[in-house]
Design a protein around this nucleic acid. Structure first.
Lengths: 333, 333
DNA sequence: TTGTAAGCGTTATCAC
DNA sequence: GTGATAACGCTTACAA
């Protein structure tokens, strides 16, 4: 049936210890022995059982990436990069989706760590870092800014600064009725709040009054929310000549509504998004957006997790990755 | 350190056997014992070690999904659905990406199966089913049509019929210079070939001559390929009033080129895509497309894999999932 | 209903 | 440099 170390050992006329040494590329094996063992391995088609190995070693060389949804473009890209970069250090990534369900989020962070995975990378949606910190049973790195001492490592871009940049860009184009789409006062996930802070701060700095009627809330960050938020804004009677959307998906939804209302982008309304998903590069017109350095985020998070695994008692860190404004067609001048 | 069955047993004053029974929800445990054990489990924060469990049981309750890229919208959606549906039967899905590399494809199908996973769902790109069949060391289900007896189970939609439907729709709109974007004669993956067969067959049936100059080849199925293929078509001097793209991504790329050339969609050129990715629902104009029933594909594949695991010797099956034409703005009349 | 003990396939600690 | 052999944490006959 299943061929293990024992069968190979018998065939090569050595002990399991020696086979294990060869299979793991250990140094001190006589060349002749190595050759004989390797041959037996090939002939029998031996493949090591990773479960047994992990059980014995107490390490899985696997980390999990917990995100709200796998098929959201931003998370799909992030996951893809994370898998690729993790591979460089010999790690396997297990991708988990929570569907934004707080209980699943809690379970996926608390449950498997230290058992089936060595650590967790989590992009929380409905649960605060503070709670995750209390729940955790092993190394956890949070993707997203730390708002206060949380007891957890965090990796994120500077969302406030990015919000300022996006809004200031719209203002620099001469727009004075700049709306914001994406406020989420109901969530523990503080990202939207930070981008909103940036938006308000840029307006203040430019001496443009902050009209609360220009701030649209959303339930999720997907296209339908962007479309309906844009419609609400337009229907409210507020004048709008620019809009900062907290995700590209929201922006793409908003653009659809603008097109349906016969409003031109960017002539009538300029649009800036956030995330730099590929859809935005190919929309017509192409979307101006804040581009977070996703590869850097993934790499920092993985490095940070490795450090945390190596030293569980180290003080927690707050790492910030780069971002930049990508000026394309929906907001340029 | 790590709390296991033993610690819990000691605390509850029972044997490990009983703790295991409680942890696994076994029937025959005295209510009082169960209560005591459960309390010890909670107090000690016991979490079962899945590696040990899997090693002992010889089953991982995990399957892997091998796709070219996680962040391709189609595969991201499929992965998301697969994870969700697999959950219903208590399975975990491990998502692997091959980047279209044949060696990785071979490794990911042949390596882990029977060791760290109970079976594999594979959407091959560069390796033929026949070869995968020879390489496999355990249950494998291929996502994609069987072109000949392959020795493997297959799940797919009827790509020829879908190609006919898409092309016929364009013809029904009065278009007579219908191009096809997406031919991939260099790949083992036969999907493009089948869609092309459908395209040709629809033209023949309508008595429209098949102009080979209207068939554009691509290297990958992403937007840049669609954009450059469209540009080549236009530059070749061929008249084009309709185009059938073998993926929505290709279509979105092609639409970008059309916009840059000042051609209107659908007035000047009507466009039909394939896959029904969400981007197409929100593009301006919205993309008419062939919509494969992805949830059905995922469910069929999982069911098929379960059956294969249960009976490795059963004759291989060829399952076909549903698809339909979704008429939106880029091709309607 | 519950306890005892034998493995699952590895790796790691001793010896030799 | 290589061979016995004891764990790793769990499930499961077999007993009691």
């Amino acid at each position: 049936m299943s061929v293990g170390l024992r069968e190979v050992a018998a065939r090569a006329g050595v002990s399991v210890r020696t086979v294990s040494n060869v299979a793991n590329g250990f140094a001190h094996v006589a060349p002749d022995t190595r050759r004989r063992v390797q041959q037996a391995i090939d002939e029998l088609g031996y493949r090591p059982n990773s479960n047994a190995r992990q059980l014995r070693r107490g390490r899985t060389e696997t980390v999990s990436l917990v995100v709200p949804e796998i098929d959201t473009p931003y998370f799909a890209e992030l996951a893809s990069l994370t898998v690729r970069i993790a591979e460089e250090r010999g790690w396997t990534v297990h991708i988990d989706q929570t569907d934004g369900d707080p209980d699943r989020e809690r379970r996926m962070v608390a449950g498997p760590v230290g058992r089936s995975v060595d650590g967790v990378l989590c992009s929380p949606w409905a649960v605060s870092s503070e709670e995750l910190s209390r729940l955790r049973t092993g190394p956890v790195v949070v993707l997203g800014e730390r708002r206060a001492a949380s007891g957890l490592d965090h990796v994120a871009i500077d969302n406030v600064a990015a919000g300022v940049t996006a809004t200031a860009h719209l203002l620099s184009l001469g727009r004075r009725r700049v709306a914001a789409i994406g406020a989420q006062p109901h969530l523990h996930n503080g990202t939207a709040r930070l981008r909103l802070d940036g938006y308000r701060s840029a307006l203040r700095e430019a001496g443009v009054p902050v009209a609360e009627g220009l701030v649209a809330r959303v339930q999720t960050l997907h296209r339908p929310d962007g479309a309906s938020a844009m419609a609400r804004l337009l229907d409210s009677g507020e004048q709008v000549d620019g809009v900062f959307c907290f995700t590209d998906e929201l922006a793409l939804g908003a653009m659809r509504t603008l097109a349906e209302r016969g409003l031109r982008v960017p002539e009538d309304v300029a649009v800036v998004g956030f995330d730099d998903i590929v859809d935005g590069r190919w929309s017509v017109p192409a979307l101006t957006t804040i581009s977070p350095d996703k590869a850097q985020i993934a790499r920092m998070a993985l490095d940070c997790l490795a450090a945390r695994i190596a030293d569980p008692a180290a003080p927690d860190r707050d790492l910030v990755a780069a971002h930049r404004l990508l000026v394309r067609e929906t907001a340029s001048g």
